[in-house]
């Protein structure tokens, strides 16, 4: 058992993550061709607009559909289906917590691939200042609130039905993920009404920003993702946890350096034990980069399955894979 644990602690995390992400991407984007159907309550962007290949549907799509029902229905018997839908989503979510973002989400995987391309081309990446970081971190909560309120407003007759699923209309996943199965039909502007025109144009504009932004900034879109905000709000009972032992931390900053989401607390905060922050994608690169034994740990149902060790750190450093140094 100890040998197995040592092997896991010394794992080449980046390589493991690359192959797992690739497998998950293939499953979720092409699994539909093999009749795989994981339902429509998945806690990441397996896009429902990828009608041919999807192996499941992102929960945000049915959620917005359900919330846009006329109020007498929504607050009547149909409200039960909203609750049951959320229950299924929650059951999926608690297994991996925000690991869904770091290991499974196809849109996150695409951003990691664009980052790898940028690295190969030798372009340097951008970082936010702490002030910018704090401001940007709020946007996802704003989008989450709008994503709930606008469909409710549609159900109440305040907004046009053309706004339908407002977040999906502006989500780059709607355009990019179907593209992988040869469906380019979402790369259009809808001229049928002013609302549709503005929303689809906004969607295409954001898709352009996504592609350019992901090239210069790691996990660019994840800062604005309302699914990430929803995850964090319900993350308390999740089984997968990121733990920190502040007594063992020397605040060397390696964890912050490798963090794609630039979460400074991972290095600075030595008091909080549950160190997963709202922007965290639980990629566990911080654990792999930490040289202090036991300072950072990944637990599943209170059982530690991966923790920082000196041997693991040295092995990964010697391989020279993935532990990016800051570029100044």
């Amino acid at each position: 058992m100890k040998r197995l644990k040592d092997a896991v602690d010394r794992v080449d995390l980046n390589r493991f993550r690359f192959w797992l992400q690739l497998a998950m991407f293939a499953l979720l984007v092409y699994g539909g061709y093999l009749a795989v159907d994981l339902g429509s309550r998945l806690p990441m962007f397996s896009c429902g607009f990828n009608e041919e290949g999807r192996a499941g549907v992102c929960y945000l799509l049915p959620l917005q559909h359900q919330l846009s029902r006329p109020w007498p229905q929504l607050f009547g018997i149909a409200g039960v289906s909203v609750l049951t839908g959320f229950g299924v989503f929650f059951l999926w979510f608690i297994v991996l917590n925000k690991g869904w973002c770091g290991y499974v989400c196809p849109l996150g995987t695409i951003q990691d691939w664009i980052t790898a391309l940028r690295r190969r081309l030798g372009a340097r990446y951008s970082r936010y200042t702490q002030g910018q970081f704090r401001q940007l971190s709020r946007i996802k909560y704003l989008l989450l609130a709008l994503m709930v309120l606008i469909p409710l407003g549609i159900g109440g007759g305040w907004f046009s039905r053309d706004m339908g699923t407002p977040f999906c209309l502006i989500c780059p996943g709607r355009m990019i993920l179907p593209m992988f199965t040869g469906d380019f039909s979402q790369f259009t502007i809808d001229f049928s009404s002013k609302t549709a025109l503005v929303m689809t144009a906004l969607g295409m504009g954001i898709t352009g920003l996504f592609l350019a932004g992901a090239f210069v900034k790691k996990r660019f879109f994840c800062f604005f993702c309302p699914m990430s905000a929803l995850h964090y709000l319900i993350s308390k009972p999740a089984l997968l946890k990121l733990k920190k032992d502040g007594d063992k931390c020397t605040r060397c900053g390696d964890c912050y350096t490798v963090c794609d989401m630039e979460i400074k607390e991972i290095a600075d905060d030595i008091k909080t034990r549950d160190i997963m922050m709202d922007d965290c994608i639980l990629c566990l690169k911080c654990v792999a980069a930490c040289p202090e034994p036991g300072a950072l740990k990944a637990n599943f149902a209170s059982v530690t399955f991966f923790e920082s060790t000196e041997a693991g750190f040295i092995k990964r450093s010697q391989k020279g894979i993935g532990l990016e140094q800051p570029e100044h």
Binding site: F191, T200, G208, L209, L211, A212
Partner: peptide, 10 residues
């Protein structure tokens, strides 16, 4: 128009 807007944004 869709590709135009996307390309311009990029």
């Amino acid at each position: 128009w869709g590709l135009g807007v996307g390309l311009l944004a990029v």
